[in-house]
Each structure stands twice: as structure tokens, then as C-alpha cells.
């Protein structure tokens, strides 16, 4: 696991660094999507997760739903194109779960990707992701995850 300014970035995930989202490919070919610890710290305590309904198709970098905190409202962008096949109802019911466990119980949607092989190449993982997050934090003046 990479640790960048106190924020952890698990090695087995693929990241859209600009939008602070991660994707994890499951053994059945589906993809779990969530927010990074960095995104959660920037947002502050999340008070609502309003996802698009299961069955909706979403293009890469388009919204899978809206996250809202006291100081931020914005979309969670799909790391790859695909159909939303499940929404994490725990995160809907208790949005602070997203802050508490962004890579586990705080996942957001499960997708059936259209073209994982083609589109996942735009995502970063491992050391490349860590370096890109460090550069992003530097640009944004981010002090670090507490």
C-alpha cells in the first residue's frame, strides 16, 4: 500500500487521480468504484450519497451519482464506462461510512464495464498512482490526511 502525505492508496486499485476515484476489478469481471482517502479528506464529513439507479449506463468520466458534504457537492465520476449494477445502500443510509472506510464498506457503486481492457489504461496504479497523487497534492497545497 502506498502512503502519500498520510493518505493510503492500496496497490490493488486503479485510480483516476484527477477525480479522486478508484476502481477494483473483481474476479467476476465487475468493477467496484469508490472515493479515495484524499477525496474524502477534501470533502469533509460526507452527508449524502445519491447514486444513479442500478441499470443505468454511464460513460467514462461521467457521473455515477452525487456526493455532498458540508463544503462540497459534486459528482463521483465513473473510472470506466459501463452499467451500474448495484449501489452501496450502506453508504446511502450512513454516508459517513464513506469517510470511515473508503476502500471497504464505503464503496459507492458496482459496475459492469463495457471495455475494461481498453479504458483501464487511462487509470493509474501502484507507484505511478502514488507519484501522480503526490504531484496533485503539491499543486493543490494539500497538507495531508490527518
Amino acid at each position: 500500500m502506498a502512503l502519500v502525505r498520510g493518505c493510503n492508496f492500496p496497490d490493488d486499485l486503479y485510480y483516476n487521480v484527477d477525480d479522486n476515484v478508484w476502481a477494483r476489478r473483481e474476479s467476476d469481471g465487475t468493477v467496484i468504484v469508490g472515493m479515495t482517502t484524499y477525496g474524502c479528506v477534501l470533502s469533509g464529513e460526507i452527508v449524502a450519497w445519491t447514486a444513479k439507479k442500478a441499470g443505468r449506463s454511464v460513460d467514462q468520466n461521467k457521473s455515477t451519482g452525487t456526493v455532498e458534504s458540508g463544503k462540497w457537492v459534486g459528482p463521483v465520476k465513473a473510472p470506466v464506462s459501463g452499467e451500474i449494477i448495484a449501489v452501496n445502500e450502506v453508504a446511502v443510509a450512513v454516508p459517513s461510512t464513506i469517510n470511515a472506510d473508503p476502500y471497504g464498506a464505503g464503496w459507492l457503486v458496482r459496475m459492469k464495464p463495457c471495455d475494461w481492457a481498453g479504458e483501464s489504461g487511462t487509470l493509474l496504479n501502484g507507484q505511478a498512482a502514488a507519484e501522480a497523487f503526490e504531484a496533485k497534492m503539491q499543486t493543490e497545497g494539500f497538507p495531508g490526511c490527518a
Binding site: K62, S63, T66, G70, K71, W72, V73, G74, P75
Partner: peptide
């Protein structure tokens, strides 16, 4: 801007 805000219609 006291809340960072964006939707599919309005960009921050």
C-alpha cells in the same frame, strides 16, 4: 463559493 459545487449542468 463557500461550498464547492458542481452538477452535470453547472460547473464549479
Amino acid at each position: 463559493s463557500f461550498k464547492s459545487y458542481a452538477t452535470s449542468e453547472i460547473v464549479s
